[in-house]
Design a binder for these strands. Structure first.
Lengths: 150, 150
DNA sequence: TCTTGATCTCAAGTTAACTTGAGGTTGCAG
DNA sequence: CTGCAACCTCAAGTTAACTTGAGATCAAGA
């Protein structure tokens, strides 16, 4: 007989979502998802968490960091179960970001097209390099141009 | 009086390229660039290294990892100074990768368009999630899909 | 009740691409 | 010959997103 409890163990959630147990614990620690506890202290997840986890996974595929995803989830109306409309709204804001990233990549490709064959790669003259030069001067540390964060 | 030596110190290279001194040392350690040494053990760079460094910077902007860039540079004909054609060839192979990345993002956006409004986010049914499921199974550790920021 | 697999916590390790710091040397202008 | 900025090496720190391991506890079937 199949269990009809609506509480799932972390292992069950891991199986259903494909997210590892350790990652789920990490997500909880980071406040992305929530879990109840059994009398013995083990995590018990309600069905609704599956949707949050799905959202996290999908958002990651779209290239968002957990920090961004958390902010998105935190923007949810507090106190009531999120509706389909809530989720759809979140998706829509993500689309804007995606649009921007695609546009940036297409621009970059255009410049690369211009550069192929010239082989110059001069810091002074290369259009590819220089076009992005200013955007690049954003503080110290690793510089990610293509999908960087607001 | 302007120095006409063709050897540059690490500080000069840093000034000319915008790459930090510590990053240049790191690049040398990783085998991306090479440096001669002064009698006292300080690095001395030949002009040709500027082009390699440019290539590294541009490639990073295109979203490639240093490991990938190193492989590209290692594919250079050994024993002779790289020609413009060599550099152009490298650029061309990078364009292929860029094309693929753009295509993947556009597909993703298409699916997101389909998903907006449905709000389903079901792991079983969401086309957005499932379509990329396999592509996502790329080993362990942090998964950077787009080239995004930490 | 026993046993075994699933969980728990907490600390430390992993990867990429660097940066920062400590403690010591080099090289060039004056 | 001095002084001091620039350089050197080596070790450790940084961030994201987790994983791995140790040592201990829980839950459930036989």
């Amino acid at each position: 007989m199949i269990k009809t409890t609506d509480l799932m163990t972390i292992g069950e959630v891991a199986d259903r979502t494909g997210v590892s147990v350790s990652a789920l614990r990490y997500y909880e620690e980071e406040g992305l998802i929530a879990a109840l506890r059994s009398s013995g202290g083990q995590r018990r997840f309600v069905r609704g968490e599956l949707r949050r986890i799905s959202f996290v996974m999908i958002s990651q595929q779209l290239g968002f960091s957990l920090a961004q995803i958390k902010m998105a989830l935190d923007s949810f109306p507090k106190g009531r179960t999120p509706t389909k409309a809530d989720w759809a709204k979140l998706s829509r804001t993500f689309k804007g970001d995606l649009d921007k990233r695609i546009e940036a990549l297409v621009q970059l490709r255009k410049r690369l097209d211009g550069c192929i064959g010239c082989g110059c790669l001069s810091l002074k003259h290369c259009a590819l390099y220089n076009a992005e030069d200013k955007a690049n001067k954003r503080g110290v540390g690793p510089r990610y141009i293509i999908g960087d964060q607001p």
